[in-house]
């Protein structure tokens, strides 16, 4: 082959690559528009002061903060209260579910005792057993535990608040996915490290805190982010429970708002924008952990 022929061939190949890359970008951009435009449209519509609400648009016909002040100040249950509820539920949910799974995974990965394998397989079986009545039975359980009862007296309001937060959070605290993820991370911790700590006289709880937790930190971070997203987004359970209206978290409260506030869709849109922001922030910072956790969760 002459040099002219090879360079011609190379040029043709480069042209074809450029064409195929151009096509790929075109498709990528169209899909990105489909994925992101609904969010963008909600943001710009929530900023508009007036006009027909649902029109398709690329830019807002005006910018004002009145829908935001309407949703923040104008609702029967203060919006800040729902935000606080979401923060409390998420904080409790994430810390407790991570702690419980990280504790329980330690003996399952690194100790030997009768019944260990049985418990492990029993937990594994729970994943596939039919749980369609889960909502129903958990509703009954929550009632039977007295978590929905109204308390009287000086500490009544406080007790009501604590027990209703507990009612919302408790059913999702024992995460089987989290247990498997963290157990998997513990398995790769060298046994010699644990033995050495034991010989030095360390208590098991100290070993867990000083050896296991730091070495499993990336997995635990991944799981924590998965849990944050799950707790922030969950709404069904809180909608089904007969909670005091001021106990609703944001995602559930939004649905309530869309009913009572149906005349002002823009204000509800402003509410959804505020609800999404924390998730996007956490996702942006923890994306790498998040993807890792997701893949691990399916493989495990």
């Amino acid at each position: 082959m002459t040099t002219a022929e090879t360079s011609q061939l190379r040029a043709r190949r480069r042209a074809r690559a450029r064409l195929s890359n151009g096509l790929a970008y075109a498709v990528l951009i169209v899909i990105a528009l489909i994925m992101l435009y609904p969010f963008y449209w909600t943001v710009i519509t929530s900023l508009e002061p007036t006009g027909s609400v649902y029109d398709p648009k690329l830019l807002p016909n005006g910018v004002s903060g009145r829908n935001y002040s309407a949703v923040i100040n104008g609702t029967s249950v203060p919006f800040w209260r729902m935000f606080v509820n979401s923060v409390v539920i998420c904080t409790l949910g994430v810390t407790l579910s991570v702690t419980l799974a990280a504790l329980a995974a330690y003996p399952l990965a690194k100790m030997r005792f009768p019944g260990r394998d049985l418990i492990f397989y029993a937990i594994l079986a729970l994943v596939v057993l039919p749980n369609e009545a889960g909502l129903i039975v958990n509703f009954v359980t929550t009632r039977k535990l007295g978590l929905l009862e109204q308390h009287a007296g000086a500490f009544g309001p406080l007790l009501n608040m604590v027990s209703q937060y507990a009612a919302i959070v408790l059913p999702s605290l024992a995460s089987i996915v989290g247990l498997f993820l963290i157990r998997q991370a513990y398995l790769s911790v060298p046994l010699e490290l644990i033995e050495a700590a034991r010989i030095d006289g360390a208590k098991e709880l100290t070993i867990w805190r000083r050896v296991m937790l730091p070495l499993a930190a990336p997995t635990i971070a991944a799981f924590a982010i998965l849990e944050f997203v799950a707790f922030w987004n969950s709404f069904l359970w809180a909608r089904i429970l007969p909670l005091d209206p001021q106990m609703l978290p944001l995602s559930a409260g939004l649905l309530e708002l869309s009913g009572t506030f149906s005349t002002n869709s823009r204000a509800v849109m402003a509410g959804t924008v505020i609800t999404i922001i924390p998730i996007l922030v956490v996702f942006a910072f923890g994306q790498r952990y998040f993807m890792k956790g997701l893949e691990g969760a399916v493989k495990g």
């Binding site: 329980a104 330690y106 030997r112 009545a133 129903i136 408790l170």
Partner: peptide
């Protein structure tokens, strides 16, 4: 190890039984 192991698993297992195992059993009975 048995004592320590069950101690570590206890809080997780209690919640798991109440909110995951029990719904499967009681739900089927219901």
């Amino acid at each position: 190890d048995t004592l320590v192991g069950y101690g570590f698993m206890l809080p997780f297992l209690v919640l798991l039984v109440v909110y995951h195992t029990w719904p499967v059993l009681f739900g089927t009975y219901l």
